[in-house]
C-alpha cells in the first residue's frame, strides 16, 4: 500500500434550491457543508450516516455526476472541478461507480454482455468485435459469472448475480477508483458476504481504491480502513476504523453505532459506558 493520496476533497459544498424570482421566493437547502477528506491509494474509505446526511451526494459529486457548489476535488493532484467536458470524460474511465439497486442500473431490454461492453465502446471505440467479446467474457470470469451470462437479460439474474455484472461493467475500463454506493444494502445476508469478499479480492488483484457508502455498519467495520461520519451534511468525525468503532468521540456517532444489531444483544451499553468515561 502506498502512502500517496489518490483523492483529496477540500471544503466540498452543495446547495440545492431555486434562484428565486419576483413570484417565487428564494429557497435553499444545504445538502453538503464544507466537507474535507482524503483517500490514499489502495485504501477503502467508508462514509456512514443516516439517510439524508449527504453520503450519496458526496459520492456523486466526487465523480461530477452532480456539480459541486463550492470546494475542490483533486484526483492524483489534478483539480477535476475545473476540467472541461472532454478531459473529464477521459478521466471517467478511471473513476467508476457501483449502484445500490442493480435492478434499475441495467437496461431490461439489452443483454448483460452488451451492457458490460458499453463502457468499453465509449472509452476504447477502435477495438474490434472479437477482442471486445473476449474482454467481456474475461470480465465475467473475474467477477465469478459463467460465460453464458453474456446472452442473458437482467431479469434472469438474481440480485447477487446482477451486482456482480455491475462490477464487471465498471471494471472493464480498468478504473483505479470506485465509488461503491450501498452496493450490498438490497441483498440477502449471505449474498452480501459474497459481494464484499469479491470486492476485497478485486482490490488486491487490481490495486483498487474504494469509497464505500453504506449503512450496514458491521460490514463497514469489517471492510474499511478509515471511516468518516456524516450528519446533516457535515463531517463530524473521521478516524481509522478500529479507533472509530472502539472510541467514537461524537455523540451522533455513538448513537449510530449503538444501533448495530448483534447476536449477543446491545452494543449501545458499551458505547454509553464509553461516553461516561
Amino acid at each position: 500500500m502506498q502512502n500517496e493520496s489518490l483523492l483529496d476533497v477540500q471544503g466540498l459544498t452543495k446547495v440545492y434550491g431555486n434562484k428565486g424570482s419576483l413570484f417565487v421566493p428564494r429557497k435553499e437547502m444545504l445538502a453538503v457543508n464544507n466537507v474535507s477528506f482524503s483517500i490514499k491509494k489502495g485504501e477503502t474509505f467508508g462514509l456512514i450516516g443516516e439517510s439524508g446526511s449527504g453520503k450519496t451526494t458526496i459520492g456523486r459529486m466526487v465523480l461530477r455526476l452532480i456539480e459541486a457548489t463550492a470546494g475542490d476535488i483533486q484526483y492524483e493532484g489534478k483539480s477535476i472541478l475545473s476540467m472541461k467536458k472532454g478531459e473529464m470524460d477521459k478521466l471517467r474511465s478511471e473513476m467508476q461507480i457501483i449502484f445500490q439497486d442493480s435492478g434499475s442500473a441495467f437496461n431490461p431490454r439489452k443483454t448483460i454482455g452488451e451492457q458490460i461492453l458499453h463502457p468499453l465502446n465509449k472509452f476504447h471505440s477502435n477495438s474490434d468485435a472479437g477482442y471486445q467479446y473476449n474482454k467481456v467474457i474475461e470480465m465475467l470470469d473475474v467477477v465469478g459469472l459463467r460465460a453464458d451470462f453474456y446472452h442473458r437479460y437482467p431479469h434472469e439474474l438474481s440480485g447477487g448475480q446482477r451486482q456482480r455484472a455491475g462490477i464487471a461493467r465498471a471494471l472493464i475500463v480498468k478504473p483505479k477508483f470506485l465509488v461503491l454506493d450501498e452496493p450490498v444494502s438490497a441483498l440477502d445476508v449471505s449474498v452480501k458476504a459474497q459481494i464484499i469478499n469479491l470486492l476485497i479480492d478485486l482490490q488486491k488483484e487490481f490495486q483498487l481504491t474504494y469509497l464505500f457508502i453504506a449503512h450496514n455498519l458491521d460490514l463497514v467495520a469489517y471492510f474499511c480502513d478509515k471511516v468518516a461520519v456524516l450528519s446533516k451534511g457535515e463531517l463530524i468525525e473521521t478516524a481509522p476504523t478500529i479507533e472509530l468503532f472502539r472510541k467514537p468521540k461524537h455523540e451522533v456517532t455513538q448513537k449510530l453505532l449503538s444501533s448495530i444489531l448483534t447476536l449477543d444483544g446491545d452494543l449501545g451499553e458499551y458505547y454509553r459506558k464509553q461516553s461516561a468515561i
Binding site: 449471505s190 458476504a193 476485497i200 460490514l219 467495520a221 469489517y222 478500529i242
Partner: peptide, 22 residues
C-alpha cells in the same frame, strides 16, 4: 456466521476472521 463478528475491533484487531459466505 454471515453476521460479521465485531469482537476483533475490541481486541486491537486481533482475531479478524475472513467474512463467511455461503
Amino acid at each position: 456466521n454471515c453476521i460479521p463478528d465485531l469482537d476483533w475491533i475490541f481486541l486491537d484487531g486481533v482475531g479478524k476472521k475472513p467474512l463467511f459466505q455461503i
